[in-house]
């Protein structure tokens, strides 16, 4: 069988500024897909950038993927695919809620396959 694994990188945390998800090591995987859901809306946007790393310590934006813009005013979901990513993945994000002090709550899944 082909190995596959789904990891929940964030489960509903509130985001109000710049952030990065925890490093996730998946050297066995050839393809992956992020799903980002707005669980609890807040007016504004979140920009999400896929990042790669050779060692889990030093990070760089994926050269072949544009940043993803997510409107967090209502519930919703965005997804994109990632390939040829080396052994690690994470997301760099910037939340820009229009109401100062309250950001959206996001759930982030990473689905990987051999």
């Amino acid at each position: 069988m082909r190995h596959a694994q789904t990891a929940v990188l964030e489960r509903g945390a509130e985001f109000t500024g710049e952030f990065a998800t925890e490093p996730y090591e998946l050297p066995w995987a050839a393809e992956a897909r992020f799903f980002v859901q707005v669980i609890d809306p807040a007016p504004g946007t979140v920009t999400l950038t896929t990042q790669l790393s050779p060692d889990g310590l030093n990070w760089i934006d994926a050269e072949h993927l544009a940043a993803v813009e997510l409107d967090t005013t209502g519930v919703g979901m965005v997804t994109w695919r990632v390939s040829e990513f080396g052994g690690w993945l994470r997301l760099r994000g910037a939340a820009r809620p229009t109401d100062a002090g309250r950001g959206p709550r996001l759930r982030i899944h990473l689905v990987a396959k051999e």
């Binding site: 190995h3 694994q5 990891a7 929940v8 990188l9 925890e22 490093p23 996730y24 090591e25 998946l26 050297p27 066995w28 050779p54 060692d55 889990g56 310590l57 030093n58 052994g87």
Partner: peptide, 28 residues
């Protein structure tokens, strides 16, 4: 935190590998 299937890769020497084979389960 979700467990990771790791080949124990580090910044200084690259892939360490597991006791046998490539992979170990990593809790971080």
């Amino acid at each position: 935190r979700p467990p990771q299937v790791s080949n124990c890769t580090f910044f200084d020497t690259g892939t360490h590998g597991a006791l046998t084979g490539d992979y170990a389960l990593k809790l971080a």
